[in-house]
Design a protein around this nucleic acid. Structure first.
Ligand SMILES: [Zn+2]
Ligand SMILES: [Zn+2]
Ligand SMILES: [Zn+2]
Ligand SMILES: [Zn+2]
Lengths: 444, 444
DNA sequence: AAATGTTCACCAAGTTCA
DNA sequence: TGAACTTGGTGAACATTT
């Protein structure tokens, strides 16, 4: 209102001076406060490289975008003020350029369009790819069950046999670059803890809740003999070749027990037949264990920080595992860890691993396939929805690729466990052996 | 002079106050704030730099435009009022100038003409020769979403079941001229790729994000039996009649997943009801798939060059499709490909296919029809605008004709898929079956 | 927090027509 | 002529991105 009022008096556009833009501002220092370089109105900040008011900001952008010629109806020397700035676009625009407003800083049509599309897309993913309540439920159930069955601080991991990091020279050096030297001979104290009878006697079994038992009676004889030097070792140093084995076996047993509890806590898992439950677990236990270990993997130290105990890849060696397994596994942990997954994502891939319909021995592919599908879509949607950044669309394929990689190790793991068992019996728990055994329950 | 005039005016009105406040009645809050400075009539706003009524506004413009000299019939000192303002043009105009109305602010003849031209252009040329920004936006959104959901190099197509190009002799030779001999028994290696659990389990479903599910439970029994030799085949060679089927099914599934993602990425699609989304997808998936395949169709070799794998029409045969479908499809690909469409045009026709209001089961024809219309007009305008050459006006009708042709194949495709499924079950993914199934979601 | 774009009442040009 | 209307520019307030 006051602006229009002043309009009349500023008719003498060219002649008069700015007169009174400071009347309103308390600061008598015109230079000090923020004044629009074009019209003298209050400026709130820099726009297109000059200190201007909101009006001149919008005017400049619109004029650039319009890119139609302007003509001064007066004498091309209008003095632009807050009140008369609308009277002559040509001189206003000229002043804009004169004080340094740059047209390059106005986003081009294409830039804006691109930005808009991108924004649309984001909203899309938020709104439409929005997690369905079904999917939310899936995640929540998984998270809850995961948390109650994964002791990420390993505080309940007690009563284990001590970790012995001495490397007893084996008959032949099967070193790899990974294993040339362990910088941390003793990564962390993992010595004796008070013996816990619960742990050493395994309270949990794949088929413990069922009448079916594909358990420890199964012999290993059906396994093809590994081409490696098992006989040598066997005869050589019976119980002390793999110094870390007792501890690692206990750790593994501990992990497996939790993984079984995790699986059995899932509705979709329980609704499968016992046979398929066992098949899935036999197929996925190793993978889930590695996924869980990955959650505590420190990518800069290459250590697994399991609460008070820290492990390194050499511990795997000391437990008798071979580079053929350890090397890809090491790579896997680095790759996956670098994806910096969130807990929800970790638990989803655990579940995806569990519900793999193509495990040996699986009878009912249908429902497992469906669950797997739901899980995969949920993970994908979750990533689309919750992740930001330009590379987010690459995350899902990367995760999948990690899982695929992991999958290729399962068989080798079983093989090496069986070898180790052969070399150093009575150290690996029956539970581990059961998981690793090839007998599918359908054979029972 | 304007100040003087305003002063007089002000004085006559309020007789008080210092002349500093001056300038018409903004400060005379109690007084009529909006009175015409010329005649005292109600003023609705500023006109040509003075607060005037509508009458004086029009009078001033006309007078300026006429630019003919005026003479006062009286003594050149008429007092202008609302009632007598028409009696002396000269004194009225003089008063107009006196209160600050500026002739420069009346647009000149040329300016007005220019403006008119500009407006005409908006209404005519723009619609015909220039893409409106709205249309630009449509195209850009489509392009962006198409590119992010169409893997034209098929680099993400992995984990498929291998392509087997052996042709097992069927009970009767249903050859056509197309199939007399396949010059490339093995068009390209399409053997095993590393197994990818994600692909083989279908991570995407038409109705996955809704509670509605028209999914796999639907039986096929309602379909009329195809007259062909299905019983023979069925009893003959159970699982290996259509050697290419596993691979083609995986490819199809892969394509469908991307097409669903494409559709769901479109704002206009998402704003439809879930039911209509499903109906549109069921109707258009085959067509969009063919359009996408057409983009990689090599018209001189008659091969589809899908990244590292190349397919020929015989692969369709080997997957169990019949000439009744394959022949028109082959023709379609040649015809469409020869039009040498650009990516923008391809994506527009994909969208036009998707937003076909007359798909079975569609409930809300209105909005779909509107979108379809917009798309068609955009395509037409695009062609008019971007294409050159004498035959450009023929392109749009030709494209439309291709779409019509394609449309006639949809039903036959569904029929043949169902036949194939009957002959060789457990090979076609549930997702494909869902797309092909006749159950409209309203039946659920 | 700063600086882009976006939105939308609102204002003042022209236009229509009785 | 002028009331009623259409049109397109304005800019304060808001949203988004970094
Ligand atoms: Zn300004
Ligand atoms: Zn000027
Ligand atoms: Zn008047
Ligand atoms: Zn007169």
């Amino acid at each position: 209102m006051s602006e229009e009022a002043a309009g009349i008096q500023t008719l003498s556009m060219q002649t008069e001076e700015d007169e009174d833009e400071d009347e309103e501002g308390k600061q008598t220092e015109d230079d000090e406060p923020r004044v629009c370089g074009v019209c003298g109105d209050l400026a709130k900040g820099y726009h297109f490289n000059a200190l201007t008011c909101e009006g001149c900001k919008g005017f400049f952008r619109r004029t650039i975008k319009r890119s139609s010629p302007l003509r001064c109806p007066f004498l091309n020397n209008c003095v632009i003020t807050k009140n008369n700035r609308r009277s002559c676009q040509a001189c206003r625009f000229h002043k804009c350029q004169a004080i340094g407003m740059r047209k390059e800083m106005v986003m081009s049509k294409e830039e804006v369009l691109e930005r808009r599309i991108r924004r649309r897309k984001k909203n899309t993913c938020d709104a439409l790819t929005q997690l369905s309540s079904q999917q939310e439920t899936i995640i929540q159930e998984l998270l809850s069950n995961h948390r109650s069955t994964f002791d990420s601080a390993f505080s309940r991991f007690t009563g284990f046999r001590p970790m012995d990091r001495e490397i007893l020279a084996e008959s032949e050096p099967n070193q790899s670059d990974l294993l040339t030297n362990c910088p941390t001979k003793t990564c962390t104290p993992a010595g004796k803890s008070s013996p816990d009878p619960t742990m050493s006697s395994h309270t949990c079994s794949l088929s413990s809740s069922s009448s079916l038992s594909s358990s420890s009676s199964s012999s290993l004889s059906c396994l093809p003999d590994s081409p490696e030097k098992q006989k040598d070792c066997k005869s050589d140093k019976k119980h002390c070749v793999y110094t870390a084995l007792p501890h690692v076996a206990d750790l593994t047993t501990y992990m497996i027990q939790d993984i079984i509890r995790f699986s059995k806590s899932l509705q979709d898992f329980r609704s499968l037949t016992i046979e398929d439950q066992i098949s899935l677990l036999k197929g996925a236990t190793f993978e889930i264990m590695q996924i869980r270990f990955n959650m505590v993997f420190n990518v800069s130290t290459s250590n697994w920080e399991c609460g008070h105990i820290t492990y390194c890849i050499h511990d795997g060696m000391r437990a008798g595992f071979q580079p053929l397994l350890l090397e890809p596994m090491f790579k896997f942990h680095h790759t996956l860890r670098k994806l910096d997954l969130q807990e929800e994502e970790y638990v989803l891939i655990q579940a995806m691993s569990l519900f793999s319909p193509d495990r040996p021995g699986v009878q009912q592919h249908g429902p497992i396939d469906r669950v797997h599908e739901d899980l995969a879509l949920t993970l994908k949607t979750w990533i689309d929805c919750k992740r930001t950044g330009p590379k987010k669309h690459l995350l899902y394929p990367k995760v999948i690729s990690c899982l695929t990689e992991l999958r290729t190790m399962t068989e080798e793991y079983s093989k090496q466990i069986l070898q180790i068992q052969d070399v150093q019996p009575d150290t690996i728990s029956p539970l581990i052996m059961e998981v690793v055994s090839k007998t599918s329950c359908s054979d029972v």
